[in-house]
Amino acid sequence: MLAAEIAVIHLASRGAYGVPRVHVERRRQGWAVRRKTVERIMRERGITGITRRRRARTRAGPPRRTGAGGLASADPGRGADLGGER
Protein backbone atom coordinates (compact mmCIF):
# COMPACT_ATOMS: atom_id res chain seq x y z
CA MET A 1 0.00 0.00 0.00
CA LEU A 2 2.68 2.51 1.04
CA ALA A 3 4.95 1.45 -1.82
CA ALA A 4 2.19 2.12 -4.34
CA GLU A 5 1.52 5.57 -2.88
CA ILE A 6 5.24 6.40 -2.97
CA ALA A 7 5.35 5.33 -6.61
CA VAL A 8 2.34 7.57 -7.39
CA ILE A 9 4.03 10.60 -5.77
CA HIS A 10 7.24 9.83 -7.64
CA LEU A 11 5.47 9.51 -10.98
CA ALA A 12 3.40 12.65 -10.36
CA SER A 13 6.69 14.53 -10.08
CA ARG A 14 7.72 13.07 -13.46
CA GLY A 15 10.37 11.03 -11.69
CA ALA A 16 12.10 14.03 -10.18
CA TYR A 17 11.31 13.49 -6.49
CA GLY A 18 13.77 11.52 -4.42
CA VAL A 19 13.48 10.37 -0.82
CA PRO A 20 13.41 13.79 0.90
CA ARG A 21 10.68 15.26 -1.30
CA VAL A 22 8.57 12.10 -1.30
CA HIS A 23 8.82 12.04 2.49
CA VAL A 24 7.74 15.71 2.76
CA GLU A 25 4.86 15.13 0.36
CA ARG A 26 3.59 12.17 2.41
CA ARG A 27 3.69 14.29 5.57
CA ARG A 28 1.83 17.12 3.81
CA GLN A 29 -0.87 14.62 2.93
CA GLY A 30 -1.26 13.93 6.65
CA TRP A 31 0.50 10.56 6.86
CA ALA A 32 3.08 9.86 9.56
CA VAL A 33 5.88 7.96 7.87
CA ARG A 34 9.59 7.89 8.66
CA ARG A 35 12.11 9.07 6.09
CA LYS A 36 14.14 5.88 6.42
CA THR A 37 11.05 3.81 5.68
CA VAL A 38 10.47 5.81 2.48
CA GLU A 39 14.16 5.42 1.66
CA ARG A 40 14.08 1.64 2.15
CA ILE A 41 10.95 1.16 0.05
CA MET A 42 12.28 3.32 -2.77
CA ARG A 43 15.63 1.50 -2.73
CA GLU A 44 13.95 -1.94 -2.78
CA ARG A 45 11.76 -0.93 -5.72
CA GLY A 46 14.57 0.81 -7.63
CA ILE A 47 12.85 4.21 -7.49
CA THR A 48 15.31 7.11 -7.70
CA GLY A 49 14.97 10.84 -8.21
CA ILE A 50 16.75 12.66 -10.99
CA THR A 51 19.26 15.48 -10.72
CA ARG A 52 18.27 18.27 -13.06
CA ARG A 53 21.18 20.58 -12.38
CA ARG A 54 24.62 20.42 -10.89
CA ARG A 55 25.38 22.33 -7.75
CA ALA A 56 27.71 25.30 -8.02
CA ARG A 57 31.28 24.50 -7.12
CA THR A 58 32.39 26.85 -4.39
CA ARG A 59 35.55 25.15 -3.20
CA ALA A 60 38.72 27.14 -3.58
CA GLY A 61 41.70 25.51 -5.21
CA PRO A 62 44.69 24.17 -3.30
CA PRO A 63 46.73 26.72 -1.34
CA ARG A 64 49.50 28.34 -3.34
CA ARG A 65 53.06 27.57 -2.40
CA THR A 66 55.55 30.41 -2.26
CA GLY A 67 59.29 30.22 -2.75
CA ALA A 68 60.75 27.51 -0.53
CA GLY A 69 57.41 26.29 0.68
CA GLY A 70 57.14 28.92 3.39
CA LEU A 71 60.46 27.91 4.99
CA ALA A 72 62.34 31.05 4.03
CA SER A 73 62.23 33.85 6.57
CA ALA A 74 61.08 37.30 5.54
CA ASP A 75 64.04 38.79 7.42
CA PRO A 76 67.30 37.29 6.07
CA GLY A 77 69.19 38.18 9.27
CA ARG A 78 66.72 36.46 11.54
CA GLY A 79 67.77 32.96 12.50
CA ALA A 80 70.80 33.03 10.23
CA ASP A 81 73.33 33.46 13.05
CA LEU A 82 72.94 30.60 15.50
CA GLY A 83 75.98 31.30 17.65
CA GLY A 84 77.85 34.33 18.83
CA GLU A 85 76.64 37.63 20.19
CA ARG A 86 73.43 38.48 21.92
Rank of each mutant, 00 (worst) to 15 (best):
residue 38 V to F: 06
residue 52 R to N: 08
residue 80 A to P: 00
residue 36 K to R: 15
residue 2 L to H: 02
residue 79 G to N: 13
residue 28 R to K: 15
residue 3 A to C: 06
residue 53 R to D: 07
residue 80 A to C: 01
residue 49 G to C: 10
residue 25 E to T: 08
residue 79 G to A: 11
residue 22 V to C: 14
residue 17 Y to P: 01
residue 38 V to N: 08
residue 67 G to K: 09
residue 79 G to H: 12
residue 81 D to F: 09
residue 56 A to D: 09
residue 26 R to C: 15
residue 31 W to C: 08
residue 85 E to F: 12
residue 55 R to I: 10
residue 16 A to P: 01
residue 49 G to E: 05
residue 76 P to F: 02
residue 6 I to M: 13
residue 85 E to L: 13
residue 46 G to H: 03
residue 1 M to H: 12
residue 58 T to D: 08
residue 15 G to H: 10
residue 37 T to P: 00
residue 4 A to R: 13
residue 35 R to I: 08
residue 41 I to F: 04
residue 62 P to N: 08
residue 14 R to W: 11
residue 82 L to R: 14
residue 37 T to L: 06
residue 82 L to E: 03
residue 38 V to P: 07
residue 13 S to G: 14
residue 25 E to P: 04
residue 6 I to K: 01
residue 16 A to K: 13
residue 56 A to V: 13
residue 69 G to H: 01
residue 2 L to F: 04
residue 36 K to Y: 08
residue 4 A to G: 09
residue 66 T to G: 04
residue 54 R to I: 14
residue 44 E to V: 13
residue 16 A to V: 15
residue 33 V to L: 06
residue 32 A to N: 09
residue 40 R to L: 13
residue 61 G to N: 13
residue 51 T to P: 01
residue 62 P to W: 01
residue 24 V to C: 09
residue 69 G to M: 08
residue 60 A to Q: 15
residue 29 Q to K: 07
residue 66 T to Y: 01
residue 27 R to Q: 15
residue 8 V to E: 00
residue 8 V to F: 03
residue 78 R to F: 14
residue 9 I to P: 00
residue 42 M to K: 06
residue 48 T to E: 12
residue 7 A to K: 03
residue 6 I to S: 08
residue 12 A to M: 09
residue 39 E to M: 04
residue 52 R to F: 11
residue 18 G to M: 10
residue 21 R to E: 12
residue 55 R to Y: 14
residue 25 E to Y: 05
residue 27 R to L: 15
residue 81 D to G: 09
residue 49 G to A: 04
residue 80 A to V: 02
residue 79 G to I: 03
residue 60 A to Y: 11
residue 76 P to T: 05
residue 83 G to L: 10
residue 26 R to V: 15
residue 3 A to D: 14
residue 72 A to L: 10
residue 80 A to H: 02
residue 42 M to C: 06
residue 41 I to Q: 03
residue 56 A to G: 08
residue 45 R to D: 12
residue 70 G to M: 00
residue 7 A to P: 01
residue 34 R to M: 12
residue 80 A to R: 15
residue 72 A to Y: 00
residue 19 V to F: 03
residue 20 P to E: 07
residue 38 V to A: 05
residue 33 V to K: 02
residue 28 R to T: 14
residue 77 G to S: 09
residue 24 V to A: 15
residue 80 A to K: 08
residue 65 R to P: 02
residue 39 E to T: 06
residue 53 R to G: 07
residue 83 G to W: 03
residue 39 E to P: 04
residue 5 E to M: 05
residue 61 G to K: 05
residue 18 G to S: 08
residue 26 R to T: 03
residue 24 V to N: 12
residue 42 M to Y: 06
residue 57 R to C: 07
residue 44 E to A: 14
residue 8 V to Y: 00
residue 26 R to I: 14
residue 84 G to Y: 06
residue 48 T to P: 00
residue 84 G to F: 11
residue 10 H to N: 11
residue 50 I to D: 08
residue 13 S to L: 10
residue 2 L to A: 06
residue 77 G to L: 14
